[in-house]
Design a binder for these strands. Sequence first.
DNA 1: CGGAATCCTCTTCGATACTG
DNA 2: CAGTATCGAAGAGGATTCCG
Lengths: 215, 215
Amino acid sequence: MSKSPRSYNQFCAIAKALDIIGERWTLLIVRELLSGPKRFKDLQDSLPGIGTNLLSTRLKEMKKNGLLAKGKLPPPAASAVYEIAERGRELEAVVSAIVKWGFSLLGTPNQDEFFRPHWAMQALLVTFDSDAAKEFSEIYEFHISDEIFYLRVHEGKAEGRLGPASHPDLVIIASVNELLTLGFGENQIEYALDKGLIKQGTVEMLCRFIRIFGL
Amino acid sequence: MSKSPRSYNQFCAIAKALDIIGERWTLLIVRELLSGPKRFKDLQDSLPGIGTNLLSTRLKEMKKNGLLAKGKLPPPAASAVYEIAERGRELEAVVSAIVKWGFSLLGTPNQDEFFRPHWAMQALLVTFDSDAAKEFSEIYEFHISDEIFYLRVHEGKAEGRLGPASHPDLVIIASVNELLTLGFGENQIEYALDKGLIKQGTVEMLCRFIRIFGL
DNA sequence: CGGAATCCTCTTCGATACTG
DNA sequence: CAGTATCGAAGAGGATTCCG
């Protein structure tokens, strides 16, 4: 049968939690699934170095622990996917706290570091400034390399989704490097205009976006 | 030289954070240090199964990463201790989120599970109900087996410390099993009176304590 | 093609013994 | 008490193969 995973064996909430989410790769898989269902291959591509056997093992453990479920995508491309489950989504607060703590460690991107555009989406959701967004209701869509996602701000709350929005107010098309410059560089507005990154929407919207998401 | 620790090598806040706090035992060491400075031996006793070499290694890594510092206890018992540092204390939010998530996994204590009374203190700080405590200012002290700690409620906030309080309002003396019954059992008040656990203070205070900390 | 199983190498873990 | 040294066991990582 399945070999029993290692446990701290402590009657303590943190230890019990870490028995489940503390193993290598597990929280990164949660991170991936929080932004939507993914196929095995998608996960592998976002988790360089994991190896098929280990990913397979982790997915099984996580399913057993109620963090995710196997599902099917709607008819067009009816492939098997892994999607976050109830108990997995409840980890959003944990992931968010970790992102906040880890943000200062980011520094500047190193050439040998992997990066996927949708990770920026999750970071933005964490740096989101609710007060600055109170009076706005807008949808910001991004096309970064081959990934598309959007952020919707409404009633002081923000949510992010992979894929295109129905009626985006602002559409930014950029490369990964341009995105990073936009996020960490100086004179972001000038840079965006200079490179022609705004494909739809106004400069005001971009200014607002930058302010709302604390860049 | 020191071999470089394993890294996910991703330009992503979660991955960067997990490079530092994701290794086995690290967050449990943080948990221990969040309740006060500890000696090597103290840590070992609260982390059964860690092995001296691994604990030593972890402490070095954590010091290098700014999570803790080596200090000396004040004159009486001037022994070397490890204490939480700035960046380590900032992990309080992370630990708190994990505790909240892991709470439902606790179930009932199993005989083969380890338990240390001061873990209860941290759990109580997380289940603390600020609204229920708004109008009270009290100090609750606990003597559980050989451990003493207290919780101070003031202006809708709660803080916990190891050791005795200066002027506790309520003092509970109990065994580990009695503490767990108090935490997870029924008819807690009757039980406390029956066993004579209240060494100082009133029944009203115990009721309040139970309500404030959501038991 | 997605994904599970196998095999091999390397690193990390855990337990005990040992030293300052 | 505070670590270091050592060694067998378990886990991780990479490549390859097998199966639907």
